[in-house]
Design a protein around this nucleic acid. Structure first.
Lengths: 229, 229
DNA sequence: CGGCGGCTTGATCGGTCTCAAGTACGGTGG
DNA sequence: CCACCGTACTTGAGACCGATCAAGCCGCCG
């Protein structure tokens, strides 16, 4: 926990501790954190942090989307999660990141010093509880993700679309921030299979794809039927 | 959080709160918890808790092994984790379990009242921290599990064996508590593929299988080479 | 207009599943 | 101690799904 990530070192804005002299336990976690957060921007495909780097910061997405991933020794990549506006990420049990994170497009995040959050949590049980709940929420999402990976290609893509729709609170149409390659690496499929499956769902009348990254839900029940979870 | 699970209701031993009148923050988490834990036994294939049941307890395995799983609408089962002696399980972000847990063989666990642990955590930041660390550890394992699921059958089985070896601290030979079906449902493979892959690893000289549930590591480097993580 | 990156579509290959027998093992009863 | 039985495991043959290899298409930006 001594050296900041290259990306952060290059663009870290100053986070004066003096600006937050004493944080009472009366503050809710999010409120408190947002006081401490420093805005930071990353451009398309820029690394936010890298695997095995010191985990000095926690992040909250303001705008754009982030992919969290690991690369295997043979070059295969698995995306473990996408983070959208409002999501927090960077939680790690250890002091070092177990994965890497990159900006999918241009991204703005709020950055929080991990040590400050941890020491705050040691004093404020509400903060500690929120920290725990967020980690538990990540655990829940990770387990749902693992469930996806044993399904058929059609089921994986359908579940993915439903998940994205649920997270973007736009019920009838979604705008995907990520490429087919990203989707494939998240679902454990090749881009060809992702593309073919989308075409197939379109031909069945479940969705429409007016633009490559824009999906319209025609018959919302159809997709749900494909969701075996 | 009002009705206990059937299994628990049937066999719950009394957990007198009076035995733990006041728990000072000087105690370490495990020590404190073990004071509160009531031993309980389950027999082979018996349910410990069920999906969507109230999460009233946390558990620590004393002896035997536990499978945590979900069943999809079409009957497929995914095992999310195995818990071995020393492991704790039953953490849930929500008040209801998102999965089911069963005894693989005969099992003894220690049971902790979730509400007691939570209120203790609200007072004792050490306990809160341990709770968070354990959840983060589960998150880590869940992500490793998701990584497994994008590998080839051979890689999955090899990684599984290495994981089990690491957890049982017996380096050269392991005794598997679970069936081939359990292994298959954990790895996202059929029992036939698991069996075939083990035979294949044996014929290559990486392992020996003196009994179906006993695996000997002949050339420990061979398996590690297959581990692409 | 040309070029490039991202996406789609097609043809073939291979790995895993499925279906179907066989075999080994552990437990039980004689 | 042995014979029997049921469960778990292994092994084989064929089908199927998704990967791979290879073009072609679309949209965007210079």
């Amino acid at each position: 926990m001594s050296t900041p990530t290259p990306a952060l070192a290059a663009r870290r804005t100053d986070i004066p501790a003096a600006r937050h002299p004493r944080i009472g336990s009366a503050y809710a976690f999010t409120g408190t954190l947002e006081m401490m957060g420093a805005p930071m921007s990353f451009s398309r495909n820029e690394e936010i942090y890298g695997e095995s780097e010191a985990a000095e910061y926690l992040y909250k997405v303001v705008s754009g989307a982030v992919r969290m991933y690991k690369v295997l020794t043979d070059g295969r990549r698995q995306i473990g999660a996408f983070y959208l506006p409002g999501d927090m990420f960077g939680f790690e049990p250890e002091d070092a990141h177990a994965s890497s994170a990159e900006a999918i497009g241009d991204v703005t995040v709020l950055v929080f010093k991990r040590s400050a959050v941890l020491s705050l949590a040691a004093r404020d049980s509400d903060v500690a509880r929120r920290l725990w709940e967020m980690t538990a929420g990540e655990l829940d999402r990770s387990r749902k993700h693992a469930l996806l990976l044993i399904l058929s290609a059609q089921e994986r893509v359908a579940s993915f679309l439903l998940e994205m729709a649920a997270r973007s609170r736009a019920s009838s149409e979604i705008e995907l921030p990520m490429s087919r390659q990203d989707i494939g690496d998240y679902l454990g499929l090749t881009i060809e299979t992702v593309s073919r499956t989308l075409s197939q769902l379109e031909s069945v009348g479940a969705i429409a794809v007016p633009a490559a990254r824009r999906i319209t839900f025609c018959n919302s029940g159809t997709l749900s039927c494909l969701n075996a979870c």
